[in-house]
Design a protein around this nucleic acid. Structure first.
Length: 599
DNA sequence: CCCCCCCC
């Protein structure tokens, strides 16, 4: 009996030969956490043996009835090749005819097949499965799909729940005009629960991304559906889903390649699919080495995996537009490329993160920013996996335990917040001008070692509202009370606030810089309240403090932004921090600069 | 029905 010699390699490389004939050299029941049994096959086409072969559960009866035995010859009428997690290609057999029962003894195995060498596989587009259905079978089973449906598995759907369509639809075929459908899909992203509040009302919501072999779609649940389905839906698991409403996706917010998106309703049915999950594509990653992040554009997304070398504590920042307090946590992740990068987590991701034991984090769709060279953020649309069961994660773990743990890394991002003490984005004042810092939409931050050459003592402090977080200037009512217009209150006291104008110089140029409270206090070496009292009581001492600050050097963290004032553009530079010069680190930086000049 | 995705 002839097998379809060479057909395994053809199929793995994307071809779809019709009704190939194979020999089942062996079969074994897989140990699986899920309840369903699955059979794994060692398949031969007389030239090659291939072991990443499965039967769909619908064909299990062929095994349990002994219709297939060792060395049976079969004609496969439906099959699909899935590329999962990088290189591995799984061939799933979903329908076949047994041509000959196996013979364990004489001439059992046909030909002299050898293990297929993975190097013979061509690079098939990741995550795009090739499928094949026997044409006759498609005709028998196609219904209202207009012949577009080429999914090898659609006809095999048998386990149904009452009142739902028995067939499984493909995500790509869903439209708002047809609501009798049911999909089977894998969750590839699950957001946190988010609260919203606007003029139309308020509530809670979450979204998941759903993937099948035809495409991907976003599904959103509100309020009662959050309670009903948030914990049921888990990343990487497969569900049967029906009775959601569809609407046109707003492309401004959608990164998925889908025209529609779905919303849960009280009628929505979501059921876990515990079996048959290998014939759906897995979450696919296209990991970018950390050192290659510099090739990624600001604002783009990238899949990244790394070991968490440093996990900072949770902190809060005030959103620039929203003015709301936001929780964040900065991590520093490293990989074999020898480069470290900052990864910022927000909200619940930040609060719940446990950095003990140098976990591996994989982020699908991390947002890339050019801050400090490059930095990363896990935001909406990103999915973070901690210690995922991925080949890349295990390799990283091994590397880290053996050598990475003690290695030193080049930093993409280090402004002191990572405890490294060194800063990036060093500029001298000439570079600030020639490189047009602060000319863009957003302010530019840079670090400069400079000398204070003049401190303007006039108007360097004012009497401010004593309320915490209100720094509004108060009006002296002359009756011992001070009025804050912002708080609409009068107080018997005030606090001193500083706005200090200083002229900074390095060997290239000078720059006027505004220093507020904390940075002014640190470069004058005195608290604002003390200085305010001095100004009232001891003019000479006050001037001495100002004069003593001159001709001292600091490392300044500066924010530059061009502002228009009286139709004139000027670079407004604000000091956001002044720290003493670390001379050892300065020396290393100079050596680095010399070596870049080839000296 | 959200659509913010942040900070240095």
């Amino acid at each position: 009996m002839q097998l379809s010699k060479g057909a395994i390699l053809e199929i793995l490389n994307g071809a779809t030969p019709n009704k190939p004939v194979f020999q089942i050299v062996s079969a074994k029941k897989m140990e699986s956490a899920s309840s369903a049994e699955r059979y794994r096959i060692l398949l031969s086409d007389s030239e090659h043996l291939y072991s990443h072969v499965m039967l769909t559960v619908q064909l299990n009866k062929l095994m349990t009835n002994n219709d297939i035995t060792i060395n049976s010859v079969v004609e496969v009428t439906k099959y699909m090749c899935n590329q999962v997690q990088g290189e591995k290609r799984i061939l799933v057999l979903s329908d076949l005819n047994v041509l000959a029962k196996g013979n364990l003894k004489v001439g059992g195995r046909i030909g002299n097949p050898v293990q297929l060498n993975p190097a013979q596989l061509s690079a098939v587009a990741a995550g795009v499965p090739s499928s094949h259905s026997d044409q006759a079978a498609v005709k028998q089973t196609s219904t209202n799909q207009g012949g577009l449906n080429n999914n090898a598995f659609k006809a095999n759907e048998s386990r149904t729940t009452p009142s739902t369509p028995s067939r499984v639809h493909e995500i790509a075929t869903l439209t708002p005009y047809q609501n009798r459908w049911r999909i089977r899909a894998r969750v590839t992203m699950k957001s946190n629960i988010r609260n919203w509040s606007n003029s139309r009302g308020d509530g809670r919501l979450f979204n998941v991304n759903l993937l099948d072999s035809s495409g991907e779609i976003r599904l959103t649940g509100f309020n009662s559906e959050v309670d009903k389905y948030y914990s049921l839906l888990e990343v990487n698991k497969v569900y049967y889903i029906s009775k959601c409403t569809l609407k046109t996706a707003d492309k401004r917010y959608s990164t998925l390649n889908c025209d529609y998106e779905m919303t849960m309703t009280p009628e929505t049915i979501i059921e876990p699919c515990n079996d048959d999950d290998v014939d759906l594509p897995m979450m696919t990653f296209d990991f970018v080495k950390i050192s290659d992040l510099e090739k990624c554009k600001n604002g783009s997304s990238a899949d990244v995996i790394g070991v968490v070398k440093v996990a900072n504590d949770v902190g809060t920042v005030i959103g620039k537009q929203s003015q709301k307090e936001i929780t964040k946590r900065d991590l520093q992740i490293v990989d074999q490329s020898g480069v470290a990068v900052k990864l910022t987590l927000w909200g619940d991701d930040a609060v719940n993160f446990n950095g003990q034991g140098y976990p591996v984090v994989a982020v699908k769709g991390a947002k890339v920013s050019d801050f400090g060279g490059r930095s990363l953020s896990v935001s909406g649309g990103s999915q973070m996996l901690i210690n995922p069961d991925l080949k890349e994660a295990h390799i990283l773990r091994g590397w880290f335990e053996n050598e990475g743990r003690d290695q030193t890394f080049n930093m993409f991002q280090s402004d002191g917040s990572m405890g490294s003490g060194q800063s990036t984005n060093w500029k001298n004042f000439l570079q600030v001008k020639t490189e047009n810092l602060g000319q863009g939409e957003k302010a530019d931050y840079f670090t400069a070692k400079a000398t204070i050459i003049f401190v303007r003592k006039e108007n360097c402090m004012y009497q401010a509202c004593p309320t915490a977080d209100c720094n509004k200037k108060v009006v002296d009512q002359g009756n011992g009370l001070y009025r804050c217009e912002k708080c609409n209150r009068e107080f018997p006291n005030y606090k001193w606030r500083m706005i200090l104008s200083v002229n900074l110089a390095d060997h290239t140029d000078n720059q006027w810089v505004t220093c507020f409270q904390e940075s002014a206090e640190s470069m004058l070496g005195i608290k604002a309240d003390e200085l305010g009292a001095l100004r009232e009581t001891d003019e000479v001492q006050f001037e001495k403090v100002i004069n003593d600050a001159q001709f001292k050097q600091y490392v300044f963290r500066l924010r530059a932004k061009v502002e228009t004032y009286n139709d004139e553009n000027r670079l407004k530079t604000v000091c956001v921090g002044a720290t003493p010069v670390d001379w050892k680190e300065t020396g290393y930086r100079l050596i680095e600069q010399l070596s870049q000049m080839g000296i």
